[in-house]
């Protein structure tokens, strides 16, 4: 219940961003927020996650810095005349259970420096394309994933 309310409030906030504060728009805004909440509950039913706002914020900040580093890294490689890179694949065993959490982690990974998840094999392992293949990549991803799961409030040993 509270979960739906939080979502509805989030959507209503988005509506306020779109229209600004005006009385005539509010009624439609509440309607739109309820419609959006219904759709989001149908498509993405609340799981057993208990997100921790502070940890989420810390993760968002970390992600922001990482994505800046990712952009710098790629720009440097593109403009460097020697074009230094050793592209290749690594196999990563995710600890997050299959479903929205793992998919969200994949989406985040694709914006981290040098990694791009390509596909999931039959065992549930992720095939990740790296700009520079090195043994450090997998442990680094594992620590990112642990942070992510912690922020979502799930048990990392789950699944």
């Amino acid at each position: 219940m509270t979960f739906s309310l939080v979502r509805a409030a989030g959507f209503f906030g988005f509506w306020l961003i779109l229209t600004g504060l005006s009385l005539a728009d509010l009624a439609v805004g509440i309607l739109a927020a309820l419609v959006a909440m219904r759709a989001s509950l149908v498509l993405l039913p609340p799981g057993q996650w208990r997100p921790r706002p502070l940890l989420l914020l810390r993760m968002a900040l970390r992600f922001l810095i990482q994505s800046v580093l990712a952009g710098l890294d790629v720009a440097w490689r593109a403009l460097d005349p020697r074009l230094t890179m050793e592209p290749g694949f690594i196999v990563f065993q995710p600890r997050s259970p299959p479903g929205p959490a793992r998919n969200a982690f994949c989406a985040i990974t694709s914006l981290l420096p040098g990694t791009l998840p390509c596909e999931e094999d039959a065992n549930g392992d992720l095939l990740i394309h790296c700009l520079v293949v090195s043994p450090d990549v997998a442990p680094q991803l594992a620590s990112e994933e642990a942070l992510f799961l912690q922020a979502l409030g799930g048990r990392p040993d789950h699944g």
């Binding site: 994505s67 800046v68 790629v74 720009a75 490689r77 593109a78 890179m85 592209p87 040098g114 791009l116």
Partner: peptide, 17 residues
């Protein structure tokens, strides 16, 4: 960049920033 996969790195990360 040499192939499609490395080009995806260039596009997503640099354009995002």
């Amino acid at each position: 960049f040499p192939d499609a996969l490395t080009r995806m790195h260039a596009l997503t990360k640099a354009d995002n920033l």
